[in-house]
């Protein structure tokens, strides 16, 4: 009986595409150092898209939200030379870009607008890190060398080598796919986790660059895969985008 149920479950997941999956709440240790928090960090239950937003989905969005089309979006919100520059026209993907690839070259502002249009939001770093700590069978696989090696192997491939399509990595224990091995992803509070521009300084991150109690620095220097993701996000401004940076949306559970 059990295999049949499993197959059915997979079919449902496939049909959903980038639908939302409920992620149960829990506690975990972040690799980031929170000034106001020692030890574990609690994450409330929330819903997360099972796959990153695709070119096809984002194309639908800009067709109805013309202010986010390439050439129309304000430069302050989307750096014009990079924003969606891989599409053939502002409203067509063209032959080299697949609708099933995750959308990249999107700014934080554009990603936020997309999620808001869905009645959703970008996940927080904590939510993202919490879910991304899992592998196919464990909720926290971060100490597993195989987990690290798999992620580092993706880092070692140049972004110019060509982008895969969404759903090509196995779902993790929560049923979420592509958290590693496909694209970087924006988080809602990415700008609060700046790593010092010179990552060797023993002092914490450059305090002058952000305000308030959100000041974070990397705590687990062994955890290179996560550290690099933080480094990438902290190198960006909200209007920036890169060829390997995408996003997915989250929803709070009321």
């Amino acid at each position: 009986m059990r295999p049949a149920v499993l197959v059915l479950g997979l079919l449902v997941a496939a049909a959903q595409g980038s639908g939302y999956q409920r992620v149960p709440g829990g506690e975990y240790r972040s690799v980031l150092k929170y000034e106001d928090l020692k030890g574990s960090r609690a994450v409330a239950a929330f819903e997360l898209m099972t796959q990153p937003v695709t070119n096809g989905e984002f194309l639908k969005f800009v067709r109805t939200h013309r202010e986010w089309q390439r050439g129309r979006a304000l430069p302050l919100y989307a750096e014009p030379s990079a924003y969606l520059s891989h599409w053939q026209t502002p409203t067509a993907l063209g032959p080299v870009t697949s609708a099933r690839q995750p959308v990249t070259r999107v700014s934080w502002f554009a990603a936020t607008a997309y999620c808001e249009a869905q009645g959703a939001r970008l996940p927080t770093w904590s939510e993202w890190e919490y879910v991304a700590a899992a592998d196919e069978t464990h909720r926290d696989a971060r100490q597993d060398p195989a987990w690290r090696e798999r992620i580092l192997a993706w880092y070692a491939r140049s972004a110019g080598a060509g982008l895969g399509v969404v759903g090509s990595t196995p779902p993790n224990v929560y049923g979420i796919q592509d958290l590693h091995g496909l694209v970087w992803e924006w988080t809602d509070d990415y700008s609060a986790m700046l790593v010092s521009a010179d990552n060797r300084s023993q002092s914490e991150a450059d305090r002058a660059r952000f305000c308030g109690a959100g000041a974070l620095a990397v705590d687990d220097r062994e955890n290179y895969p996560v550290m690099m993701r933080v480094a990438l996000l902290s190198s960006l401004r909200g209007a920036d985008s890169t060829s390997s940076l995408g996003f997915r949306c989250a929803r709070s559970i009321r």
Binding site: A159, S196, S235, L236, S243, S244
Partner: peptide
């Protein structure tokens, strides 16, 4: 100077 330039040259892809 601090970082030998590192503190002033942190650069994202495409920047």
């Amino acid at each position: 100077g601090p970082g030998g330039g590192a503190t002033s040259s942190f650069t994202a892809p495409g920047h």
